[in-house]
Design a protein around this nucleic acid. Structure first.
Lengths: 214, 214
DNA sequence: AGGCTAAAAGGGGTTTTTCCTGTTTTTTAG
DNA sequence: CTAAAAAACAGGAAAAACCCCTTTTAGCCT
């Protein structure tokens, strides 16, 4: 009897490649792959037989979906273990994933054997070793990372994306059908909320947090 | 008898995952994987047994190594087919890969079956269908892409990286031990060279071209 | 209806950026 | 060594960005 795994990644090629890899492991078998959190919900709800033992979630999905997905799985299927896969770097995101209930994370430079070992550890001990480090990590970095659960409004997101272009604020205002002064307001409030000094800081935040993808 | 494939990607997890996938294909077998172009050179030169039929090169390797690797393979081993794998987007890079002699490219959303089909086509027809499109592409976009072989000086690179921070130009000048007016000069010349209007445009260029990694 | 709150808009100021025009200094090549 | 090229530097003006603080507007509440 093999343990069942589900892979969640918006890049088809990658999720399928990881599927192939996991399928070479003795004790594991991929049930299916998903392109995003929504698909996970559908599949899970479609049939209780489809609930896997482990879900491998890619951190890098647009607009925080990696985190939301993890939260949803942890809340609704507490017996399912979520393992975060960070193909690209993702700074604070990885901490948020852990906080959301992921049981461990693996970086892009992981060896195949390490992944297999991690999966085995999870099933046999209930956790992967990073779990121990997690809380310490969360505490030590919490000042910066854990309370940064910033909630954006629609317009703020829209504005941030436009700010990642060469448009002036005046031009952004036109495109959003708002007064330049309102845009000034958006900018200023985001500056303080995100603790940045200028537009470049805002742009970097948007990129790091997948609000804008270059 | 199976065709041999080599996977080049700096992300161990991904190259191994793709290895597993390719190994499930009937007619293909992965010889080994490499983390960068240098490793490819070593392996190729070590023994003629190491020369594969196809090399899968990830576009996203820091500082243009995807392109250099492709050029080297094409120049030294013309019988080896290079297929570019673009896990993340890479804009002009993909055109450069094709120009460097890659025989086709596959995007992140490729289906497993498509990859297998592409590999088969390459071995049986000598090219993957994108090859036909390549030259047209290169011509049609050449105005923007092919002549954009911009060469940067050390200081320009350094400046661009600093411009991707929240520093003002005056502060950048201090860190580079130069007059603010010199920095003005760097900026203005880069603006015209890269055809951007402002600092955000510069930042975006730096990120897209892997000069700065967020 | 009055009061509360949040989004939108505005006034007016300083600083930084952008875009010209140059000049001086340093490097390079013959 | 010298002419030419490249790099560093500058003055000044206009635009954009940044910052603080106030007012209007719109929706909600009981």
């Amino acid at each position: 009897m093999k343990y069942s795994v589900v892979v969640v990644d918006d890049h088809t090629l990658l999720s399928q490649a990881i599927e192939s890899m996991v399928n070479t492991f003795d004790k594991f078998k991929v049930l299916y792959t998903c392109k995003n959190g929504g698909e996970v919900q559908e599949k899970f709800q479609a049939s209780p037989r489809n609930i896997p033992d482990i879900v491998l979630v890619d951190v890098n999905m647009p607009v925080m979906n990696g985190i939301e997905t993890t939260e949803w799985i942890v809340a609704n299927y507490p017996n399912v273990h979520v393992l975060a896969l960070s193909v690209e770097d993702a700074d604070g995101t990885i901490l948020k994933m852990l906080k959301a209930g992921a049981i461990g994370y693996l970086l892009k430079d992981t060896q195949k054997e390490v992944l297999e070992k991690a999966l085995l550890e999870i099933m046999e001990n209930g956790f992967y070793h990073t779990r121990n480090v997690t809380n310490l990590l969360l505490d030590s970095v919490s000042g910066k990372s854990s309370k940064n659960q910033v909630n954006f409004k629609e317009n703020e997101i829209k504005f941030m994306r436009l700010a990642c272009s060469e448009l002036t604020y005046k031009e952004i205002a036109e495109r959003m059908f708002l007064s330049p002064k309102t845009i000034d307001g958006y900018r200023d409030s985001l500056f303080t909320k995100l603790d940045v000094r200028n537009r470049v800081g805002l742009v970097m935040y948007a990129i790091k947090n997948k609000i804008f993808t270059p």
